[in-house]
Simulated scan of single mutants.
Amino acid sequence: MTKLSVNINKLATLRNARGGNMPNLITAAQDIEGFGAQGITIHPRPDERHIKYQDARELKGIVSTEYNIEGNPVQKFIDLVLQVQPTQVTLVPDAEDAITSNAGWDTIKHKDFLSEVIQTFKAKDIRTSIFVDPDPKMVEGAVATGTDRIELYTESYAVAYAQGNKNGVKPFKEAALKAQEVGLGLNAGHDLSLDNIKFFKQEVPGLLEVSIGHALICESLYLGLENVINMYLERLK
């Protein structure tokens, strides 16, 4: 079964909108795990507009499943991850002012930089993953960095699926097969939802973990958080 890691950034956005502590991220993370999710993901940004760096520190003592911290490896982020030592760090090349992640790494162009950062994290026994587009060349490039896994950037699949084009999954299947060939673990995330997750899971081999936040929280407004998590788990079997 593919593991479900729930990204709680949107809960932090809702909390920050009022400046208090509602919803409480600690309670939410515990509840999400209690409902069956196998991981918690956060993506702190330098401006802390949703997840705050202190949230990352406090969640370390709470999350009992896999704890995944995503972000652009600027020095502030590197220092945070080394301090917190989560289960996994996912490196994402997003600009500071980006609303959300919008591209994967060029693992060939940035090989030396990624290799250095990954060695730093692996020295602390933190599993590493690189956010990449579904391009076999980028998958091959990731191997040379020493990363443990890649995370496929799935927005193009979600857009194609919503338009009725199931062929949009083909590049992801090819990238997944390449990952298996070169010995990389495979994660995926971005715009995956209850509508498109089952087909993606069926078509993409070797999928270890998906990270889902925005869609899951939106769906939960209508269907309830516990119910939605179990709906995802059923589709990921």
Rank of each mutant, 00 (worst) to 15 (best):
I217G: 07
K52P: 02
A98N: 12
R18A: 12
I78L: 01
K10W: 01
F113Q: 14
Y157Q: 12
L59K: 06
G164E: 06
L207I: 09
N227Y: 07
L223F: 12
C218A: 15
K178S: 09
D97S: 14
I69F: 06
P46S: 12
R45H: 13
T128E: 09
I42C: 02
K111T: 13
D112F: 01
I78E: 05
L194A: 10
A103W: 04
A17I: 07
N72F: 09
D55Y: 07
T154W: 01
R15Q: 12
V182C: 11
I229T: 14
K111Y: 08
F199N: 08
L80V: 06
E234C: 00
H190M: 04
T65G: 03
D125V: 00
Q88R: 14
L59I: 03
F199K: 00
H50S: 08
F35Q: 06
A158H: 02
N230A: 05
P136C: 03
H214E: 14
H110S: 13
L14I: 15
A98M: 05
N102C: 05
A188N: 02
L177Y: 06
D79N: 15
A160K: 12
R49F: 06
V169Y: 02
E226C: 03
L192S: 11
A28V: 07
A176L: 02
E155V: 08
A37H: 01
L192A: 10
L114Y: 03
V6P: 11
Q88C: 07
G189E: 14
E219D: 15
V74A: 09
K111L: 10
A176G: 10
I42P: 08
V159L: 07
E203R: 09
V204Y: 08
N227W: 00
R18L: 11
V210L: 01
N16S: 08
E66G: 02
H190A: 01
V132D: 14
A17V: 09
T27N: 13
N167P: 00
K122M: 10
K109L: 09
E234A: 12
Y53T: 09
L82E: 15
P46Y: 05
N227I: 00
K76A: 15
E48M: 07
T147C: 11
A188T: 12
K3N: 13
E140R: 15
I99Q: 14
I150P: 09
V117Y: 01
Y157R: 07
I32S: 04
A95R: 08
E209Q: 15
S220T: 10
T100N: 13
N68V: 14
D106W: 06
D125E: 15
A175I: 05
G61Q: 13
I150M: 08
G36W: 02
Q30T: 14
E48W: 08
D106I: 03
Y153N: 12
N187L: 10
N230G: 08
H43W: 08
Q202K: 14
Q38E: 15
I217R: 05
S220Q: 10
A103I: 10
G39R: 05
T100M: 02
L223M: 10
F77V: 02
N167F: 03
I130G: 07
I78M: 10
A17D: 13
S156F: 05
N165Y: 06
V89N: 02
R18E: 12
D125T: 12
S193E: 10
G141H: 07
T107C: 11
